[in-house]
Nucleic acid binder design. Sequence first.
DNA 1: AAGTGTGAAGTCTTTCACAGCT
DNA 2: AGCTGTGAAAGACTTCACACTT
Lengths: 217, 217
Amino acid sequence: MDSRRIPRPTIKRLAVYHRCLENLVISGVPSISSKDLAERLGIKASQVRKDLSYFGEFGKRGVGYGTELLLDSISEILGIRKRWNTCIVGMGNLGMALANYPGLAGSGFITRALFDNNPNKIGIPMPNDLIIESTSLLKNIVRERNIEIGVITVPANAAQSTAELLIDASIKGIVNFAPVRLSLPPEVRNEEIDISVSFRSLAFSMTFGSSGRGRIR
Amino acid sequence: MDSRRIPRPTIKRLAVYHRCLENLVISGVPSISSKDLAERLGIKASQVRKDLSYFGEFGKRGVGYGTELLLDSISEILGIRKRWNTCIVGMGNLGMALANYPGLAGSGFITRALFDNNPNKIGIPMPNDLIIESTSLLKNIVRERNIEIGVITVPANAAQSTAELLIDASIKGIVNFAPVRLSLPPEVRNEEIDISVSFRSLAFSMTFGSSGRGRIR
DNA sequence: AAGTGTGAAGTCTTTCACAGCT
DNA sequence: AGCTGTGAAAGACTTCACACTT
């Protein structure tokens, strides 16, 4: 598969299809058409078919897609069987929330370490046998525990230096919740989640009646 | 201004420019070129100029943009002076984190109410003189306190019914953290933040070396 | 000389429309 | 008849390139 040609929005939608199919399989629905699947997600049927067509032919003409087969296929495409070891740096409110959030482990992202540089927080016990540890130990711990993904939940002014610590520990991907753009070497993958920018964008569209419902992109 | 023609990614970048300019103004930098601003954000200078050109001419040729003037102009465009009353529905980990997160109030999004339907949580005192209240009171409280934005942090299976409660209370915009697509009337604006989809997308690009750093879009 | 503002070109993504299977 | 898979068309967004201003 030549993933350079796969639109990023397609990957995000695949993850959404996956979740929807899990529910369908649980509900015992044996098959679904692109039209029905699209309707559930508020997108176009042709979008569903095009997304899937990048990876193969999973449907039966005249019938639709077998839910179990499609679920398996998408799991394969997204590498959903793989488990990823992650760590969270910055145990403020958001870091705490993520450490307590079962949805990540449920998706294969296992939190293996929690870091903060506030001495008052170090040692605090957390779920899953984790303890908040000093950021000064990050490099060793990341390597020992084979952590591949770092989650940055520190304040904006500490985000870049945190990223550099993670890179120095040979992390391969970063999810950055801090409201700054990180400068990273090209081999490190990066996903930004900027909550206040999303609120702002909502506010703008509320004020100016802009184009409306956000698509999955 | 004809906001129907403004690309959504432009709005999100405007919010990012705004934040960057705040720092520049604080640091006493009097002006900046599109090239320098773009470099700080990891995008192209022409993108910065095009984004701004949708709204007017803010720069001086041969010089650049006055930081204070540009900051004011973007504030005006994004309606940053306006204060938005918000409520959070679902006081699990994420709802708690948002209620404690100063970044939102700092951006003009004031949390005016917190709801949950777990009787054990109702009455718990929270920051800013707030108390967790019963979801059954939502409609009245939303109207009394002029709440315009609802933040959904309930589990996936409760998200749609929560959205309907909010709509029934005449909310105008929804930020949805639950991993489901809401079906909403067209006049209600909506922004989705799907954390596990972002992790999945990161994992995919880590596995298949896909096109790399997410742009602001 | 430096840097903006902007049509036009280029690239990426979505949607259409229909041939082809079941 | 119904629905997929997919080239081609449309649309959205970004980048180029250069005229224009300071």
